[in-house]
Amino acid sequence: MSMAVGDRDDNEPMMEMNTTPLIDVMLVLLIMFIITLPVQTHAVKIDLPVPTDAKNNVDPEKNKITIDPAGTIAWNGSPIDLAQLAQYLDETKALPVEPELQVQPDPYARYITVDRVMAVVKRSGVGKLGFVGNEQYARVF
Rank of each mutant, 00 (worst) to 15 (best):
M1P: 07
M1I: 11
S2F: 13
A4N: 11
D7S: 08
D9A: 10
D10H: 05
D10T: 05
N11C: 08
M14T: 13
M17P: 06
N18Y: 08
N18P: 07
N18K: 05
T19Q: 14
T20M: 12
P21V: 02
I23Y: 12
I23G: 04
I23N: 10
V25G: 10
M26W: 09
M26Q: 10
M26E: 12
V28W: 06
L29G: 09
L29P: 00
L29D: 12
L30V: 08
F33R: 10
I34E: 01
T36G: 04
V39F: 15
T41R: 13
H42L: 13
A43N: 07
A43Y: 06
K45A: 14
I46D: 05
D47P: 05
L48P: 06
V50C: 04
V50Q: 08
P51C: 01
P51D: 04
D53V: 08
K55V: 15
N57K: 13
N57G: 11
P60I: 15
K62C: 01
K64Y: 11
K64H: 11
I65Y: 00
I65P: 00
T66M: 04
T66S: 09
D68L: 01
G71R: 07
G71F: 06
T72I: 14
A74Q: 11
W75T: 00
W75M: 01
N76M: 05
P79H: 03
I80F: 03
I80P: 06
I80R: 05
D81M: 00
Q84D: 14
Q84E: 15
Q87W: 10
Y88W: 07
L89A: 07
L89P: 08
D90T: 13
T92F: 06
A94K: 15
P96W: 05
V97S: 03
V97R: 01
V97E: 02
V97D: 00
P99I: 09
V103Y: 04
V103C: 04
V103T: 02
Q104L: 07
D106K: 00
A109H: 08
Y111V: 13
Y111L: 11
I112K: 10
V114G: 06
V114M: 10
V114W: 09
R116Q: 15
M118R: 02
A119G: 10
A119S: 14
A119F: 10
V120Y: 03
K122I: 12
R123Y: 06
R123F: 02
S124H: 00
G125V: 03
L129P: 03
G130N: 04
F131W: 10
V132A: 09
G133Y: 00
N134L: 14
E135K: 07
E135D: 14
Q136M: 14
F141E: 08
